[in-house]
Amino acid sequence: MHKSSTTLQTLPRIDLNADLGEGGQHDAAILKIVSSANIACGGHVGDTDSMRTAVRLARANDVAIGAHPSFVDKENFGRSVQHPSPEILFEQLCEQVNSLIQIAEQEGCVVQHLKPHGALYNQAAKDSELGAILIRVIQDCQPQLRLVALAGSALVTQAAAAGIHVIQEAFADRRYNNDGSLRARTFPDACIEDDAEAVQQTLKLVQHQQLQSVSGELISVRAETLCVHGDGVHALHLLESIRAQLVQLGVTIAAPEHS
């Protein structure tokens, strides 16, 4: 992660996103709070009905819609490291993304971004072969799709070099390693369970583009979008708290603008 001197004055807005359509109890309420939604497309969870429900709710709340494809791994909720063949993975991801695009079109909506889920997200952040597959998926499915990727990761540079519009992402409810990567979920402290701590991490990210790693080191993280996992037990309350704090600071919560 490179150091950044950006201050709140040059970042008057932030996108607040959540991963939805994953069987969480509060999707409808969450979609009244966030500005972007990443909708599960069937790889780790989700089907035609859940996608259509999420799309309709997002449209009703003027929330930007994104595809949230995954390794095909329902047993492990897409959070297990996988190494499928490149062509099989490409076909699986295209099928997932195209399914959501088709449903969105039927509902009069446009899918605006793609955010890989779980293990695919973390592996692609540093694996250029997986990054190339995600780039191909966007180019094949809908070239206007923007790619949501871990802020500061190698994937950001790779996708931008391929002409993809990248939205750099940080997490309110995840802990980080010193190199800016996410703490693996195999560690018990990977997720932030305390709402107050997650809110403080959010404020540090938005105000100072910094956060504290698991070892206590301050690292620079410059992000345009902030994620709270919609399937978390405290997701709704946490999102309400985060939005209230950001609004109080005068930060505009809105989906990234089209270039």
Rank of each mutant, 00 (worst) to 15 (best):
T53E: 13
A198W: 14
P69A: 02
L8W: 07
Y176G: 00
I219Q: 09
D47Y: 11
A184V: 09
L57I: 11
T10N: 12
T10F: 13
S213K: 08
A172R: 04
L31Q: 04
L11E: 02
Q123L: 15
S80I: 02
A160T: 12
S153H: 05
G108S: 05
H68L: 12
L134W: 12
H258L: 15
G21W: 06
D173R: 11
N178K: 05
H229P: 10
D231V: 11
V156C: 13
Q245N: 12
L246D: 14
E224A: 14
A104H: 03
S259Y: 05
D231I: 08
G108R: 10
N38P: 00
L182W: 05
H44Y: 00
R52Y: 14
R185N: 04
G24Y: 03
E22C: 03
T53I: 09
L205C: 14
P69R: 11
L236A: 12
I133T: 06
Q209P: 03
I33G: 06
T252Y: 09
G163R: 14
C227S: 06
L57T: 01
F187D: 04
I138F: 14
A184H: 11
I103T: 04
A235W: 14
V63G: 05
N76I: 03
K204C: 12
S50E: 05
E107F: 14
L155R: 10
A125V: 00
E129K: 11
D173C: 08
G46S: 03
A154K: 11
H117A: 12
E129A: 01
H44P: 11
G152L: 02
C141Y: 00
S181G: 08
D127V: 07
V97L: 15
S35W: 05
L236G: 03
L155I: 01
